[in-house]
């Protein structure tokens, strides 16, 4: 699973280059995110660009919650670009109310060019 992290002012943008955060990949996702959260301990916000992720199951959802807990109460985990099936899982479980959810990675944060 490839996670591409880019620093932006006050925020770490993490692009998830994987199609599925599922039972087969959830632990790897959590482990990679733990490394990034710890390596970028000064970033008060982390935004996950999920626009490449076509599917996420309850294992993947639990892993995203685990990342939020790893970050602690003073840091925010935000989600961007939820695709339809992923959005459905977050909405049905009401976990879309726990994170700030952006339809897309906001314009000013995406890579120029």
């Amino acid at each position: 699973m490839e996670l591409v992290a880019e620093e932006r002012p006050g925020l770490l943008l993490v692009s998830i280059r994987a199609e599925r955060i599922d039972a087969a990949a959830a632990i790897q996702f959590k482990d990679r995110m733990r490394e990034l959260v710890q390596a970028h301990g000064g970033a008060p916000r982390i935004m996950l660009d999920m626009s490449h992720v076509a599917f996420l199951d309850s294992s993947g959802l639990g892993a995203v919650v685990a990342v939020m807990k790893l970050m602690g109460p003073d840091r925010q985990l935000e989600l961007a670009g939820l695709t339809p099936t992923v959005e459905k899982v977050f909405r049905l479980t009401r976990m879309d109310s726990v994170f700030t959810v952006h339809p897309l990675v906001p314009d000013g944060l995406r890579n120029a060019g």
């Binding site: 639990g62 919650v65 939020m68 899982v89 049905l92 479980t93 009401r94 976990m95 726990v98």
Partner: peptide, 17 residues
């Protein structure tokens, strides 16, 4: 649970879904 009912869980979503 989701706040304010309780802390978000890392599991237990499967059968609910």
């Amino acid at each position: 649970p989701v706040p304010p009912e309780g802390e978000p869980a890392e599991g237990g979503f499967g059968w609910f879904l």
